[in-house]
Amino acid sequence: MCQTTEEIDVAEIDFRNLSPAQRHTKAFQIVGDLRAGESFVLVNDHDPMPLYSQIQASHPDEFSWTYLKQGPSVWKVEIAKQFKVA
C-alpha cells in the first residue's frame, strides 16, 4: 500500500512552467530517483496519460498512478514507487 498525500508531505512538482520537450525527461529523472514507498505529485496543464504509458513500458508495474485532480486546467497525479513483493 502506498502512502497518500494526506498521510505524509509529498513534493509537488509543477511541470506547467517546463517546455513540452523537458516534461517527460524531467518526469523520468524523478521517477528514476524514487525509492520504494516514495512518491511525488506531478502538476500539469493537461492529462499526462501518455507519460503513464511510457512509465509502464519502461518500468512495468513498479509505480502506482493516482489522479488527485483531473482538469480542466490543472491535473495532479501522485506517482509512487511500489514495494517489490518477494
Rank of each mutant, 00 (worst) to 15 (best):
G37V: 13
Y67W: 05
G32Q: 11
Q56Y: 09
Y67V: 06
F28L: 11
G32K: 11
L51A: 07
S39V: 03
M49H: 15
F28N: 02
A27G: 00
H59C: 01
I55E: 08
F28E: 06
H46D: 13
S64P: 03
T25P: 00
T66F: 02
E62H: 04
Q29L: 11
G32I: 07
Q29P: 00
Y67S: 05
H24D: 08
T66Y: 04
V41L: 09
R35A: 06
D33H: 07
E38C: 04
A36I: 08
D33F: 07
V41K: 05
F40T: 03
S53C: 04
Q29M: 05
F28T: 03
H59Y: 15
S53E: 14
L42E: 03
E62L: 04
H24P: 01
T25H: 11
H46W: 14
E38A: 08
D61I: 02
W65Q: 10
P48I: 12
H59V: 00
W65N: 08
G37L: 09
E38T: 07
E38V: 05
D45C: 00
T66I: 14
E38W: 09
T25N: 07
D45H: 14
H24M: 08
R23P: 00
Q54R: 14
P48G: 05
D47C: 04
I55C: 10
R23H: 00
R23T: 03
S53H: 15
D45K: 10
D47L: 06
W65A: 05
P48E: 12
H59L: 01
Q29D: 08
F63Q: 02
L42C: 04
H24W: 06
W65R: 08
I55F: 14
Q29Y: 06
M49G: 02
W65F: 15
F63L: 00
M49S: 15
E38P: 05
